[in-house]
Design a binder for these strands. Structure first.
Lengths: 146, 146
DNA sequence: TGCGTCATGTCAGGAGTCTGACATAAAGTC
DNA sequence: GACTTTATGTCAGACTCCTGACATGACGCA
């Protein structure tokens, strides 16, 4: 047992929550001019890197349920930003792909988010950024593995 | 300009979001036996450290709107975990305090969350934990300041 | 072939949080 | 004193995300 009481001033969990909240707020503000929220952007970004993902795969990649991703996809599809076949010759998973409009909007959104991320990391050296990334991945792995 | 495109494999923002999502999931699971969600626990924890805070102050401390905190407080008050005067001699802010029941539940909840945090940090040295905390605070400051 | 298990897509309902709005109280300004 | 600004508490509505549920298709196994 390391400790059985939380001290907010030194709690990594509290700092993590605070940082994530601040990042979300900044991303929301940066994406608002493009009429995108963070969930919609996350969906587009992942899809840009890995075209053809199904709803369930997208949901796992963006840390939401597939039900939530379903409604997000419907909205983006209605706006013509992505396309999905009504059926596939084999299997049940429906591969999703960005349309040209979706790709164009993603380019602008990705640039806006990159600015936010650069702003967030402006006081950290390149080495510190790599280290921070590694520490966060280690924390995530430790939590997921139980 | 550091970069104008996001690479998810090395994105600190993505790793931060992932870690925060995993932490929230683990905390939810740890708090469920106590019939508390993360928002309710956060409220109790902050109140344990800083008794007498108002709704607006609690909201800022837990990174939600004061409207959201208002409903959280109502639920906790209905369960007899905290008390709030109907009015105060001066000013508008109503100071909130934990009841004995609230203090007792917080003790158990805090221990459960401390276990989750210890699990999250199990692969990091004491020095690395301090460093990670500092880096997260730096990121938050950079985002808030713009 | 038949059956059990698993993953997927989707619908329905509910819980939580947000934005917008309004009234009230303190503090500063003229 | 009168006004503006700021902060607070609260209500209402909308949005997002969740849990629960069901049907469908792929796969493993007897």
């Amino acid at each position: 047992m390391t400790q059985d009481r939380i001290d907010l001033d030194v709690s990594v969990g509290y700092a993590l929550k605070h940082a994530a909240a601040a990042l979300r707020t900044s991303m929301d503000a940066a994406l608002r001019p493009l009429d995108l929220n963070v969930s919609q952007y996350s969906c587009l970004e992942v899809l840009g890197h890995r075209p053809g993902l199904s709803v369930a795969e997208l949901a796992r990649a963006t840390f939401v349920t597939r039900q939530s991703m379903h409604t997000v996809l419907q909205g983006l599809q209605d706006r013509g930003l992505l396309s999905r076949p009504a059926s596939v010759p084999s299997g049940r998973a429906l591969p999703t792909r960005l349309t040209p409009d979706g790709t164009h909007l993603l380019t602008r959104a990705s640039a806006a988010v990159a600015e936010v991320e650069a702003s967030m990391l402006r006081d950290l050296s390149a080495a510190a950024r790599v280290r921070l990334h590694g520490d966060l991945v280690a924390c995530t792995s430790a939590l997921v593995e139980g």
